[in-house]
Design a protein around this nucleic acid. Structure first.
Lengths: 339, 339
DNA sequence: CTGAAAGCGCTTACAG
DNA sequence: CTGAAAGCGCTTACAG
């Protein structure tokens, strides 16, 4: 029912080698035969079987993407960039959720390995050593997106988190704020936690502001409600604060919700700056000022890099650092009561 | 370098048939040999090549998902449901953006066909007739998710859009509102446009409210800014309105932004109800009351259904209608000035 | 219970 | 320029 190369060959009365040639090296076939084959192909609506091809070429044109959880809104733009990059070279993406579970991770990797994918993109999380070893053992090309590895020499694409946090804080300071709080992710998170806290503190220090780390930074896990509670605690212990730096847009929206719901005006009483530059940052009230990561580009460049590794091309720098950028909207104003 | 079945066979000193049997029908092999083979497999870290298997079984365990644009936040939960359903039966998803472009659609379908995917999920948009014919010609199993087709007998999973819009409106009416506006998608959109407008109008009629369709409904395309402008126009021509039904959460957030930015309080002056039940509905201020679709389930059930079609199992009803549900949060209150 | 052989749908030296 | 043959890595009747 599905036409095969044999069907085409017999309809065109040539050998299957010839059919294969008109598909792959048409110049090797005399025009007359080439024409006949082309006609047969079109008549039978023939398309070569990529499995058979893949078996021979040891290349499938499909890439695996491991992300913690696709339902996190952070990924939509990143995935779009990945898709577009994959598409440019006729590759496809198999997207898998790891749920930050080792068991899940391993079973996914096994399936992807069996499906002979050409390589994988590992997203957001620090790469666990067992997965690294698996990649090495399976000889899987890997590129890290929105994360990197200091332990291993793996290509990566990400923003400079420490510097971005620093810049966000300096932006607040430049607006006259001196009592600034931070809603952070877990302290031990090596991407969205630790470096962003360090950047925040460095900015405070560089500008000679007095602060007590135990008072001005509060921790929350990754989701809204948790950050909402973190904001509550932060405000409880640091009521004189006039601005807060939230280390993700979702955390910023949670902070804004808490403040609004407690009759504290944003930005009139407290300014809020986010981090990420997701689409929803433009949909809040007030519209969120945020340090944007080039999400689409991170995805695009990561896949691009992976493709280069696969093709054996030169990848340029191993760890690509993409620029962040402060997007000014309405959630930050000049400090109303400068000291 | 990658171990093959031959390597395992020679290490275990059996034929490749035996290796294949311990993988697929272990009971056919005597325990002693089975053991030896298993050891060889583990020693060589062997995993069967899914391409070779797929070539024989005519089954790849990979499904195609066509969505208009993954960067739309609507899809994250839906995709998560799809993923989980696929996972349960060791299938994977190849997600592709169509950008509502016929050219793109066709090139994607061609690639997926060559990759021998087992079936496809078509999402959100009405299925164009050329794609339907392509599916038919290629003999592709298809399931429609968050959309359906009246023209063709295709399995689908979606909410009853007309009824959901009706219920949203009745909810507003039940809260005492009589002057209700609507921010709609394009009138000719057969999913998020037309039926939702019809549901809205039917509710108004059923409750004997006076209204002029030309005044109380305003149209916007799919994105935020466009809906923001729609809200502006709507408010301009219908200032006495006390509630608005927005036919997506993004439209609702846009409406809220417009109102807030023009010193109109939500919900005190105007109540707003959304549609979809995306995650961001819980992150706005005020938190958005919305008619939620079971997004995760739509994805899950659609893949489940596709798998059934592929396996030749009975799929139950062709067009599955999943229940919607009003999630009450803080963007709707009782009409402050009932007539 | 097990191995040799054919075959899934291709590509690519190798002859001619 | 073109065809027959071998081979990619498997599975599955078919004998024995």
């Amino acid at each position: 029912m599905k036409a095969t190369i044999k069907d085409v060959a017999s309809l065109a009365s040539v050998s299957i080698s010839t059919v294969s040639r008109v598909l792959n090296n048409p110049e090797l076939v005399v025009p007359r035969k080439r024409q006949k084959v082309l006609e047969a192909i079109r008549e039978l609506n023939y398309s070569p079987n990529a499995l058979a091809r893949g078996l021979i070429h040891k290349r499938t044109g499909t890439l695996g993407v491991l992300i913690p959880d696709i339902s996190n809104l952070f990924y939509s733009a990143v995935l779009r960039g990945m898709e577009d990059a994959a598409n440019r070279s006729d590759s496809n993406l198999i997207i898998c959720n790891t749920d930050t579970s080792a068991a899940r991770r391993n079973s996914i990797l096994k399936v992807l390995y069996e499906k002979q994918i050409d390589g994988v993109i590992w997203t957001s999380e620090p790469l666990p050593s067992d997965s690294y070893e698996m990649f090495a053992k399976l000889d899987f090309p890997v590129v890290l997106a929105a994360t990197h590895s200091l332990d291993y020499n793996l290509p990566s694409v990400k923003v400079d988190d420490e510097q971005a946090a620093y810049d966000a804080t300096v932006y607040l300071i430049g607006r006259g704020h001196t009592r600034i709080g931070m809603i952070s992710g877990p302290k031990n998170d090596p991407i969205s936690g630790y470096p962003r806290i360090q950047g925040f503190l460095r900015a405070l220090r560089d500008h000679h502001l007095k602060f007590d780390e135990a008072v001005c930074v509060e921790y929350g896990k990754y989701h809204f409600e948790d950050s909402y509670e973190a904001m509550k605690r932060l405000h409880g212990k640091y009521p004189e604060m006039t601005a807060v730096f939230a280390s993700s847009d979702e955390r910023a929206l949670a902070a804004i919700s808490y403040l609004h719901e407690n009759q504290i005006r944003v930005p009139d009483d407290i300014s809020v700056i986010g981090f990420d530059g997701t689409r929803m940052a433009g949909m809040s009230f007030p519209r969120l000022t945020t340090v944007a990561q080039p999400l689409y580009n991170i995805g695009y460049l990561a896949v691009d890099k992976l493709l280069k590794v696969i093709n054996g091309d030169h990848i340029g720098e191993l760890r690509t650092c993409v620029p962040h950028q402060i997007i000014e909207r309405n959630s930050v104003i000049d400090c109303p009561q400068p000291i």
